[in-house]
Design a protein around this nucleic acid. Sequence first.
DNA 1: CATAGGATCGCCT
DNA 2: GGCGATCCTATGT
Length: 201
Amino acid sequence: MSKLPKSFFLNENVLEVSEQLLGKVLCTKIDGILTSGMIVETEAYNGISDKASHAFGNRRTKRTEIMFGEGGFSYVYLCYGIYSLFNVVTNLKEIPHAVLIRAIEPIDGIEKMLERRGKSKLETNLTSGPGILSQALGINFREHNGLDLQKDEIWIESRGVEISKNEILRSSRVGVDYAEEDAKLPWRFRIQNNKWTSKAK
DNA sequence: CATAGGATCGCCT
DNA sequence: GGCGATCCTATGT
């Protein structure tokens, strides 16, 4: 019901934001249709010192520029030529932190999400991964990068669900083997025993 | 169930 | 020119 305020995203601790996002609801309203799901899995990308981050080493390019802006905006990029991956930019201006949303539990607009995914039946493969959840919500890197999450196309709201610390499972991030010593950092957060989390190990 | 390979394209060197 | 913060399908056990 209540959209998360800008201040939520200005938190200077991206690990904290990653945890706090669990249980919140990611919503899109595209072509007048509301689709949404509860965030059940996230990953933190900790700026210029994080070898897994696109902004590592203060790499500032056309693509990464949005991360160097103020928190509370979307960072959506194309992965493997096919999938759009949705991140929330966090922290103050000039500090390129971001949280990757890795999985959601469908709530609103399930019919529309099924249609976008080319599915007929509600199963976990509707939204249990960063590429497919974007597809379900209608998010793509061309139209939805750099959007202000205070506006009405993409936003995140709280619907009163509280996830306690002992329900949160921490592990290493997925698909970042190239990040050397940073590959093992426990910066992936999941709600324990939630079947809508991604299948990745 | 496990593993392997393909799809597909913008980004960065 | 090489490769990736992924997912799906096919094949074998």
